[in-house]
């Protein structure tokens, strides 16, 4: 049997990391019963595939990375309560060049998460948000470059600037 357009569209729905999960199978069964052609092609949905999905993946990955940094960052700052020496000793590690690159990555992640978060808010609250989600992603990436490049120039100059 040649997979026609409808059949390949159905495959879109059940392959990938969620393949075989009960929820997907149940949804597919429901849709078949109702005589629906399954609309989950990568072009046709808001979040599945392409920019919509990858911006969501990046939002999760940056979010989790920032969360774990935050846990560590509160604890290292808490050392001010132990003694000036303890705090200065630990914070000195933030000043070495390798950590400096880590800070650059952290800020890049925060700036993406921030601007893409605004995009998500616009998708949810602005009446034309969903329609313009892809254009807004390009906006996010442009703003990201505008914010991150000057930051990197200044920060890397400080980190590698021979202090």
């Amino acid at each position: 049997m040649t997979p026609g357009p409808a059949r390949s569209a159905q495959w879109q729905c059940i392959r990938g990391p969620l393949a075989g999960r009960k929820t997907d199978a149940a949804a597919l069964r429901l849709m078949k019963q109702g005589g629906y052609s399954v609309p989950n092609t990568s072009k046709g949905t808001l979040y599945r595939g392409r920019q919509g999905m990858w911006s969501w993946v990046a939002h999760r990955v940056t979010g989790i990375a920032i969360f774990f940094f935050l846990l560590v960052h509160v604890l290292d700052t808490a050392l001010v309560r132990v003694s000036p020496e303890a705090y200065n000793h630990v914070i000195a590690t933030y000043k070495n060049p390798i950590m400096g690159l880590g800070e650059a990555g952290l800020v890049a992640a925060i700036v993406y998460h921030a601007f893409n978060g605004l995009r998500i808010i616009l998708i949810d609250f602005w009446k034309n948000g969903a329609k313009n989600q892809k254009a807004m992603l390009w906006g996010v990436l442009i703003l990201w470059v505008i914010a991150v490049v000057p930051f990197l120039v200044r920060h890397l100059a400080i980190v590698f600037g021979g202090h």
Partner: peptide
């Protein structure tokens, strides 16, 4: 990170 000496300025005195 951007003002003054950036990350190099951060120590107990800065936080205090």
């Amino acid at each position: 990170l951007m003002m003054g000496d950036g990350v190099h300025a951060i120590d107990f005195g800065f936080v205090g």
